[in-house]
Write a protein that binds this DNA or RNA. Sequence first.
DNA 1: TACAATGTAACCGTTGAAATTACATCTTGA
DNA 2: TCAAGATGTAATTTCAACGGTTACATTGTA
Lengths: 145, 145
Amino acid sequence: MQISSRFTMAIHMFACIDTFQDMKMTSDFMAGSIGTNPVIIRKLLQQLKAAGLVEVSRGTGGVTITRPLNEITFLDIYNAVECNPDEALFRFHENPNQKCPVGRNIHHVLDDKLSAVQKAMEKELAGITLADVKNDISIRIAEEQ
Amino acid sequence: MQISSRFTMAIHMFACIDTFQDMKMTSDFMAGSIGTNPVIIRKLLQQLKAAGLVEVSRGTGGVTITRPLNEITFLDIYNAVECNPDEALFRFHENPNQKCPVGRNIHHVLDDKLSAVQKAMEKELAGITLADVKNDISIRIAEEQ
DNA sequence: TACAATGTAACCGTTGAAATTACATCTTGA
DNA sequence: TCAAGATGTAATTTCAACGGTTACATTGTA
């Protein structure tokens, strides 16, 4: 089971917005670069907007990033587009048998351990910023020429 | 998006096999403890067997764990039941526009960063063993009495 | 040989992702 | 003012995966 492509699509969107700063960045343009539908982009934009990461101009169109790139981490984006705050990364089977000593204790025993794993992943995500992406992309674009 | 409950179900199965060592552990019993269907258990057993973590007795029934509990990590189990070795944890959008400088470079740029995140998660999973689970479960069972 | 168990195919219902269509709404320039 | 171009969003579709279930062949042993 994989983490959905919304996450990598959102990073791609930020890369477009930053790389083509001189252009008005529309959902149509980003959909073209990512290879998807403009409505998918608009839904993602809504999630990023709700998380305070971008501002979207109605009517006129265009997207702006609200913070310096080195202050937007992968975890910010992950939480914005991927994560239902109510649910942990690891899913539990829901009906353990309470009459079984294992069944009635397993959930609690695993909770601590698995949330530690999730925290490790989140810490790693928090250590990567959009500035890192910008840097690597511009190096690769420069190398192309 | 969550990691499927097969992972926590598999851990629960190991906890049953170990806790009730004196009993012949059948898929029916484990299904009862987990609250699922015996066929689900058998499919998981096949995956665990393929990974060399258990041995299953046909005809007579019963499951044995092939290694000491402290030598079976959560990562072993995760890889056995959850992971398609061909696919990374993070899913990519598949059709980035190769005519766009961002589209044709984003995948490569993200690959390194996201595989680092995956490695961090795997390292954490590798640091937890079934012996830890056994220990915590037996403490909790003892506290119940 | 009966029985109790695993192995496995086949099918179903549900859920979520991603795509798509359609249209209301908004902003601005002509 | 109003047409054009953009976002906001509801509704629908397709597809894949998960989890569940039934059914039955196969296996080992008392």
